[in-house]
Design a protein around this nucleic acid. Sequence first.
DNA 1: CTATTAACTCACTAGATAGTTACTTATACG
DNA 2: CGTATAAGTAACTATCTAGTGAGTTAATAG
Lengths: 217, 217
Amino acid sequence: MVARPSGATPAPPTRDADRTRAEILAVATREFADKGYDGARVDEIAARMSTTKRMLYYYFGNKERLYIAVLEHAYSGIRALERELDVEHLDPADAMRMLAELTFDHHEAHPDFIRLVSIENIHRAEHIARSEALSGLANPALDVLTRILERGRAAGAFRSDVDPLDVHMVISAFCVFRTANRHTFNAIFKRDMLEPQRRGHYRAMLGDLVLDYLTAR
Amino acid sequence: MVARPSGATPAPPTRDADRTRAEILAVATREFADKGYDGARVDEIAARMSTTKRMLYYYFGNKERLYIAVLEHAYSGIRALERELDVEHLDPADAMRMLAELTFDHHEAHPDFIRLVSIENIHRAEHIARSEALSGLANPALDVLTRILERGRAAGAFRSDVDPLDVHMVISAFCVFRTANRHTFNAIFKRDMLEPQRRGHYRAMLGDLVLDYLTAR
DNA sequence: CTATTAACTCACTAGATAGTTACTTATACG
DNA sequence: CGTATAAGTAACTATCTAGTGAGTTAATAG
């Protein structure tokens, strides 16, 4: 415990640009992920911050630039996690299953991110296109995947005609669908794909799906 | 050509409730699919109709009920198509591939429907839940799929532990992802999953994916 | 201690947007 | 034919919403 004239808490500085900016971004992320770009309300974001609406405009300029900042921040977090992937020590099949399962966990742990991606697709990725930080920024997970496929092919374990991006697409499709389409799927089929009891089943199923495809024939 | 006092065209009646209603629904479908629920503008829909905004309220009450009507209409169209599925004459593996490919074609032919589903998921399916016509209305394609799996299992061609809804989920995930996430995927990986040249590749890949999974081991 | 500037507050506004009020006219039916 | 009513029009409004104008205060450098 640090010696301090009065009060136990760290006594935050009354003014702190970084902290204010970060708080706006955090609150805005929730609001945009929750309601979509058009459904999100600047006044609602403002009401949930400890600072005022004017600060939001001070730091981010307008609603759209705030939204782009939210997207950039969300993507950078995901990329950071992906960079930590290390499956080089496993044999190709195990590495592949591991990658698929980590991606699966990852999507489950970041529903806000998935929602932002869906929202951005409704807008035809126009905001990503407008962001220098995002358009064309490659995905670290794809490099890992490419290495695994190379090793698997070399070892004769995997079929030879597969494209890494196609495999990535299948994994993403499975994970994204489970989260992004959860509500309509549940409304129509009365099955919640995110029910905890089913988690293990879907996780194993994704691994099987990918490996059966890669090792077929 | 029908005898008619003047003019060659059918001379539309000046007043026709069905036609007006249908036109509003068609224009609204495009607007909602294009911009999302919150992004859609009632005035924009009105401007693109041959009738006035007041009629929209006359027939549908408010923006939300119009949107629900759009959803109901879109789903009913898709269901009608699905009911025409007939693969009983094919052996299980071929039937399965056929079903997957027809679903694939189907999703590609109805991008507006996929967008409406994405939009509805952003809203956590709250409008579907509010629609008696939609919530819990089973999917005819699922019955077909169930029959194919039964036949395949009986013939010893498919593994025995698969659930029809899981297979349906995989097929949907693949098809929906390709359409719904086209824009962010393209922005990041510079690959348009809907490019006509790649169509055959993805279509065959989906069939392989499903069959390799069903016939593995 | 003073000046400068970054960080912040409060009250306001132009324009957009869903929805309505009050009225008119074509059509069907006895 | 005439009248009830469904179908349609035009103009309007309350409210919401993104964005601002104009100033104040805390931190920092000299």
